[in-house]
Amino acid sequence: MLKFENITKIFKPEFFNQPFVALSDVSFEIPSGSMVGFLGANGAGKTTSLKIIMDFIRADKGLVTFSSELGEKRNDVFRNIGFLPERPYFYPNLTGREFLTFMGQISELSSDQIKAGIAKWASRFKIDHALERPLRTYSKGMLQRIGFLATILHEPKLIILDEPLSGLDPIGRKELKDVIVEVHREGKTVFFSSHIVPDIEEICDRVVFLKEGKLVYDGPVDKLLRSGQEIDYVIKFKTDKKINLQSTIKSHQTFPGQLHSITVTESNKKLILKELMALDVDLSGIDLIKPSLEEIFYHIKAN
């Protein structure tokens, strides 16, 4: 769907500042039909990359190519893309409906298509009550939602979002994530940036990970998860006896109600379970701890 090849972007110095390398030789690919998360700390270069993809700024080196399913000419390609900038703020005096109509018209939709699109999505986003109000009266979350609505109104094949979930409350995030998943299921390719690792872990199948302008990882989410450290298990049980285990355990916590929780490595799991059985404890559960992207995130950051 989209190829980002060997992109280098250097911000030229203003007067006496040093030139700043915002992206250095970054390459990644967005496969058709995938949901790709774009991860990186503040200042990693996510927004800069998206601006280069959208041709708002130009790279010093490298090439962005769109696959032919989006179209051959620039106009066709852009008709099939929906882009939502970070912290969007729209024409304050237009009403929500006027803004959406405007966005629909420049995307070459007919007025019937626009009406149908608004009718379909406005209630989903809970902004139908505010459509006749000027945008300056919208809250941050409402602006984010109407921005997202404007982004998918023309049914683009490729949806690119810069921090779509920021500024939303937990319920708002959930709702927006649900809609993102829904449009993805309809066959749209989605690429969105975020620093919120669990969000990406939850809904993306791939992730592109930038750190200080360099590519750290580009591939499936679960492979990145597996590339972490050894897998651990948590064993929970109840007992009134004193516990003294032979095998090494990673940690041991006790809770009220004589509840114990121990963390063990994969290789020790069997031995410890045997010991516990011998002690005749009341076993209440074994869980696998997947290292979350969050941990990997900080792990890679530390290296």
Partner: peptide
């Protein structure tokens, strides 16, 4: 400043 230009020129609008 308000990034509305990004919304507009990310559409088929030269």
């Amino acid at each position: 400043d308000s990034r509305t230009v990004y919304m507009v020129i990310s559409r088929p609008v030269p």
